[in-house]
């Protein structure tokens, strides 16, 4: 079980969090023309990385904040955790 440092609450066990996928995906702006390909990339296409991955977690059973976690997908090492509005 991972040990994740919530930037708001401190070290907590993984079972307080839920996983939210790739944190580098940006939602296209509302009311903006976008090609089918770009839209499909946003909705469906994700890389399955081995190594460093910036991902979203929500501290569901804690402060309910969405946070960013930089984690190695192979070793599970967590390098850094950030608040939702912070960037690496």
């Amino acid at each position: 079980m991972l040990h994740i440092k919530c930037p708001h609450c401190g070290m907590r066990s993984q079972n307080e969090f839920s996983y939210g996928g790739d944190a580098t995906i940006k939602r296209p702006e509302l009311n903006k023309e976008i090609s089918d390909q770009d839209w499909n990339n946003f909705v469906y296409n994700r890389k399955s990385l081995r190594g460093k991955h910036l991902e979203l977690w929500q501290h569901l059973s804690g402060c309910r904040q969405w946070i960013k976690v930089e984690r190695d997908t192979a070793t599970h090492e967590i390098f850094k955790t950030l608040k939702a509005n912070q960037d690496i």
Partner: peptide
């Protein structure tokens, strides 16, 4: 609720 929080915290802060 998580859905709304996602958009409020990450997409449209």
């Amino acid at each position: 609720l998580s859905h709304l929080e996602y958009y409020l915290q990450l997409v449209w802060p």
